[in-house]
Design a protein around this nucleic acid. Structure first.
Length: 270
DNA sequence: AATCTCGCCTGAAGGC
DNA sequence: TGCCTTCAGGCGAGAT
């Protein structure tokens, strides 16, 4: 499932193949993703891709007229393939390029999105009000500490709140809490400043490490070249219910927090 | 204001 | 074999 590292790995994978290429045509086979793909996306046709960026888990493909915004949702995959490559089920969108290749978006569960943000617009609501990027200096333990003082919610939900920090999904929330020896169920305002300083560092560490490993391949994720990511081998708690904690050998437990399955060591994260 | 719950969607896995 | 149920979950919208 694509989280921030997977989106970044996809970005790094596709950029050399699409940067500075001209968009010849956009083929939409399934318009109904999380949101309808807007007609205005065709304003990008005939224009050159000037940059490929990422904000939170959104991939931004920029042109002079505006930006194509892609979200991989739960099961989205991006491949760069020759335009004549045979289609497979759930190939919803092709962004065809003048070099004969196309950026092909496949998403079985259709939780993903393909949107258009015109250069002269004020920006999409979903892009405004996003918190800081976790891998920049705008995000640190001090911020977590300050924002959490009034929050009674579970610390795991708190760090997964996009207004607090973007891009921390279920896998990496579980892993960073484990590394920081913080119980995911604990109220956010009861976590100490010292613990938040550690937690912020571990969020950065886990995300950066996962990007280096090419993301986490569980069921759905593959890199732009179709290769799997290797971070799954480094998971300490996620999807390891009943297995032994790598530190103390206690059985990993799971509990549902905010409708998401959560994993922790009851001894290390007491 | 803060926080919780729902719903979108398909495929894999498990029970019978 | 095949049908049914359950689960996976990002994130906005709506409810509490």
């Amino acid at each position: 499932m694509p989280e921030l590292p997977e989106v970044e790995v996809s970005r790094l994978g596709i950029t050399p193949h699409i940067l500075n290429q001209t968009i010849d045509k956009i083929v939409i086979r399934q318009r109904q993703l999380r949101w309808l793909i807007p007609e205005e996306i065709n304003d990008a046709v005939g224009l050159e891709i000037s940059a490929v960026k990422r904000r939170a888990k959104y991939l931004l493909i920029e042109t002079q007229a505006g930006t194509i915004i892609l979200h991989l949702g739960m099961s989205g995959k991006l491949r760069v393939v020759p335009v004549e490559t045979a289609l497979v089920k759930h190939d919803h969108v092709d962004i065809c390029l003048s070099n004969g290749m196309c950026l092909r978006f496949n998403d079985p569960r259709r939780f993903g999105a393909c949107l258009w943000q015109a250069s002269d617009s004020e920006g999409l609501d979903i892009m405004n009000n996003l918190g800081p990027e976790p891998l920049t200096d705008d995000f640190d333990g001090q911020r977590l500490f300050e924002l959490s003082r009034t929050k009674s919610q579970a610390v795991k939900n708190f760090i997964m709140d996009n207004k607090v920090v973007v891009g921390v999904g279920n896998i990496y929330a579980n892993e960073s809490l484990y590394l920081s020896k913080v119980n995911p169920l604990k109220s956010a305002k009861k976590i100490t400043k010292k613990q938040y300083l550690l937690l912020a560092e571990n969020i950065k560490l886990v995300l950066a490490r996962a990007i280096k490993q090419g993301g986490t391949t569980l069921k759905d994720f593959a890199q732009a070249d179709g290769q799997p990511g290797y971070f799954a081998q480094e998971l300490h708690v996620y999807a390891r219910k009943g297995e032994e904690c790598k530190v103390c050998s206690t059985e990993i437990e799971s509990v549902v927090i905010g409708q998401r399955n959560s994993f922790y060591c009851p001894k290390c994260q007491a």
